[in-house]
Design a protein around this nucleic acid. Sequence first.
DNA 1: AACTTCAAGGTCAAGGTTAATCAATAACGA
DNA 2: TCGTTATTGATTAACCTTGACCTTGAAGTT
Lengths: 160, 160
Amino acid sequence: MPNLTRVIERHIKELFDVGSEEASVSLRRKELAASFGCVPSQINYVLRKCFTPERGYLVESQRGEHGYIRIVRLSYEDPEDRLKHVETIVGDSLSEQDCKRLLTSLQERGLINARERLIIEVALRHADDLGRSEFDLSPYKRSAIQAEMLKRMLRGLVLA
Amino acid sequence: MPNLTRVIERHIKELFDVGSEEASVSLRRKELAASFGCVPSQINYVLRKCFTPERGYLVESQRGEHGYIRIVRLSYEDPEDRLKHVETIVGDSLSEQDCKRLLTSLQERGLINARERLIIEVALRHADDLGRSEFDLSPYKRSAIQAEMLKRMLRGLVLA
DNA sequence: AACTTCAAGGTCAAGGTTAATCAATAACGA
DNA sequence: TCGTTATTGATTAACCTTGACCTTGAAGTT
């Protein structure tokens, strides 16, 4: 028997499929857990593990009576290859120059637009600022952090 | 039967819509409560929960005879005002919850879209991850870093 | 003007319901 | 075996609803 987390992940993804065009699904944590015979917090584990922004999902929830968990999908599944492509380009560390070149290239190919690029550049710059002035990190370490951050941001986006 | 709070929230928001661009609506607590068959303090709960500054609203009221409650929808017309509003709400540090509320509100008003929100959340998450697991920062410090990063990311977007 | 009335709205805490978190443990895979 | 991933359950936090009690302020009364 495959592990429960995978089963639940697949089940949730199927909920998206039946709604074909549906970009979000709602569920009740307690019921879902009951239907899989597991403890409710198992659902949180699956969400934290598989339905992250980095994978193109946003999760919102409500407690109390009429509580729910809603999962919004912003991208279609299984663009693993494109994803790999991005990771290869970014690598483990990249210079400011490389970063700019990459973003320009993505923008030219229509994978991101000007506003999206702006957010990304601001975030990376801030991380770099902090790394230098607050934590006194080496240039290499800072560029490694930027690379990781860039990959995460692109992961969720490039899929769509 | 969806929960009462949501129903009342939606009802109040519709009052804004019918007034087409009206910046505020007035209502009487007792009457509104009666029309929904609930206790008057339920109205206060809805106001406290749904019509807060981070969601883009202000509430003022008058007691005594001829009392009333007025709900003002903050104007997002002027870019400078929007920026000021964002900076006020974010401040030096803000909870995960307030962050989500602000982003939701900005998204509802069309100031950011889902993809933009996704990048923002990824960047904040990554900063938080790093702060915790790599640099062992206190929760307050992490939230301060996230606040600064959020303000920077929104600055360019909100002014556009 | 000072006082009283009383019709508004405000506050708070209790009680029930549901989701999130976290740390400990178990299971798995290299 | 060792490190990662999965699972669990106890605790915590968030949400909704209600109702008892408090505060304010306009209008009437003296």
